[in-house]
Design a protein around this nucleic acid. Sequence first.
RNA 1: GCGCACGUAGCUCAGUGGAUAGAGCGCUACCCUGCGGAGGUAGAGGUCGCAGGUUCAAGUCCUGCCGUGCGUACCA
Length: 572
Amino acid sequence: MIRDTLAQLVRQAAIDAMAAGVLPDVPLPDVTLERPRQPEHGDYASNLAMRLVRATGGKPVEIAQKLRAHLPPSPVLGEATVAPPGFLNLRLSESWLAGQVDDILAQGTAFAGQPPANERVQIEFVSANPTGPLTVGNGRGAVIGSTLAAVMEACGRTVQREYYVNDAGTQIEVFTRTLYARYQQLFGREVEIPADGYPGEYMVDVAQTMRAAEGERWLRPPGEPAPEGFGELGIDIMVEGIRRDLVALGVTYDVWFRERSLYAGEGRYEQAMARLRERGYVAEKEGAVWFTSTDVGEDKDNVLVRSTGAPTYFASDIAYHYDKFIERGFDRVIDVWGADHHGHVSRLKAAVQALGGDPEMLTVLLYQLVTVRRGGEVVRLSKRAGEIILLRDLIDEVGADACRFFFLQRSADSTLDFDIDLAKTQSDKNPVFYVQYAHARICAILSRAAERGLTQDGGDVALLTHPAELALIRKMLVLPELLDQVSRTLEPHHLPYYAADLATAFHAFYHDVPVLSRSGKKVTVDVPASLSRARLKLVAATRVALARTLHLMGVSAPEQMARREDGDEDDE
RNA sequence: GCGCACGUAGCUCAGUGGAUAGAGCGCUACCCUGCGGAGGUAGAGGUCGCAGGUUCAAGUCCUGCCGUGCGUACCA
C-alpha cells in the first residue's frame, strides 16, 4: 500500500538524519501516517517530529525540516513541506498518480485487495432461532456479517461463513407443541395453541406445508402428543425459509451448524464438559451443575445443567465454541450478535479461556436495534408475525440492494433508523440510487464512446493532469486502505460512505472535464482522440473501483438504470 | 443497584489523539437541457450532554455526574 511506502521513506529519513549526526540517535517510534483533513496539507502527514521531540530535544518544526531534508528520492513522492507545530506533509507525485490508472485497470476485480495471508477466520452471523422467521434486526446482522466476510477474503484471509441453528432445547419442544396444535386445527380439531407457544401466523403456514406434503400422516389420536420426527420436520421447513430469505438478501453460507449435532453420541458436548471438569471449572450445587466462572474473573457462576438434567443454552454455546477453537482450530472467531445478547459476551469469553483457548481470538461484534419508519412514523407491527417486522417484507418492498446499503450505513454501535420511503425513492436523495447511477453513467459513457469507435486502448495516462482527474485517482487509491481498515476494525459502515464519495468525485470530474467531443446549440467541445482515450481509461478504472466497492457490500452495480418517466415529477 | 453501549447541525448520522469538526436530507441562492441534469456549485445552520483530569495536541483517552437504550434467568 502506498501509505506504507511513504511511511518507510519517512522512517528512512529519520535513520539517515541520525546517521549523519543531524539528529541525536534515539529509539525510533513506529512511523504512522495520517490523512490530513485539509487537502492543502497534502495527501499524508507525519507527526514523527512531534513524537521525537521529547527524546531528542529541540523544536518540532526544526526536526521536521531535518527529516524533510533527508527524505530519500522516490518516484512516488511529490512535494514535502513542513507545517507548524511540526508536521511533515507529503504530497504524491502527479505523474505517479496518473500511472495508477493503468495499475488499477491491470488489477481489475482484484483491485484494492491483499495477497493471501495464512489466517483462517470463522465468522458466524444471524443464527436466529428457527422457531420464527427472520426479522429486520436479523437482516442487519446478515448484511454486516456477509460484508465483513467478503472484505476479509479480499484482504487475504481464508473465511468460513457459518449459521448456528438452535435446533435443540426447550424452545424446540414449545415450537413442536405449537405446530402440532396448528396442524390439528387444519383437520378441524378444537385445539388451543399453548399459552407459552408461538402465536404468529407463520406457524399455520408451516402446518399447511406439512399437510400439503404428507396429508394426515402426522395425525395421532386426540390428546396424544406429536409423533417422533414431527417437530424436526417443522424446524427443517423453518430453516429452509430462513435460508431462502437470506439468499434473497444475497447471503449464503459455507456451513449450517446444527446445535443438535453437539449432542450426538460422545460428541462435542460431552468433550467440552469433560474438559471443563478436568480443568477444575465445574461444581455441583443447589441440585444443578455450574461453570465456576468466578474463578476466571466473572461476577457470578453460571448454570450448565439444570436441576432437571437438561443442559442450558450456555452449555451448548460452550460446546459449540469448544468445537470452533479446539476441534476446528480457527485462528480467529467472530460472532455477530444483536446487542440484546451483550450480557453473554463476557461469560462466553470466560468459557473460552477456561477451555484453554485464547479469548482474545474471539470477537463478539454487537449491533444495535433496527427501527423501521414509513412516512416518518415508526412501524411496529407485522400482520403475519406480531410485534416484529419481517425481513422478507422489507426486501420485497425496497429490494435487496437498498436493504444492504442502508443496513451498512450505520456503525454497529448505533441504533439504525430504516426509512422505507427514502429507500424506495428513485432519485439522488437516495444514496443507493446516487451510487448506482454513477456506475450506470460510467457504463453509458464507455458504450457511447465505443459506438464512435473510441476505446481506452492505447490511452496515455500521462495526459491525465487536470485537478479533477487527479482528485478522482486519489479517491480510488483510498480503497485499499479502507479495506485494510475494515478488515482490522470490523467496521463495514465505512463502505457506503466511501461509495458515495467516489461517486461524487466521479460526477465532479465528469462535470469539469469533457471525455468525448460534443456539439450542442451553445457550446462545441473538441476533445482530441488521444485525450479521449486517456480519459476513457480513467473512466474505466473508476468503474473498476466503484464496482469493487459495491460488490463487497453485496450491492449490484447496474450497467443501466431504468429511465424515469418524463414529466413525472410528483411523488406517488 | 450493577454491567455494556450511546449522547456531534433542525432531522438521520460520519469523524484511525493532530492543523479551520464533516456528509446526506431539509432550507436559501445559482449553472438551464447538457459526452445520461437521476448531475454540479455556493450559503445559512455547532457551547461535539455537563464538569474535571491526562497530553505539545482531546469530539476522540481517564474519572464523576445527567439523559437514553439494552442487559442483569436453572429463557434462547
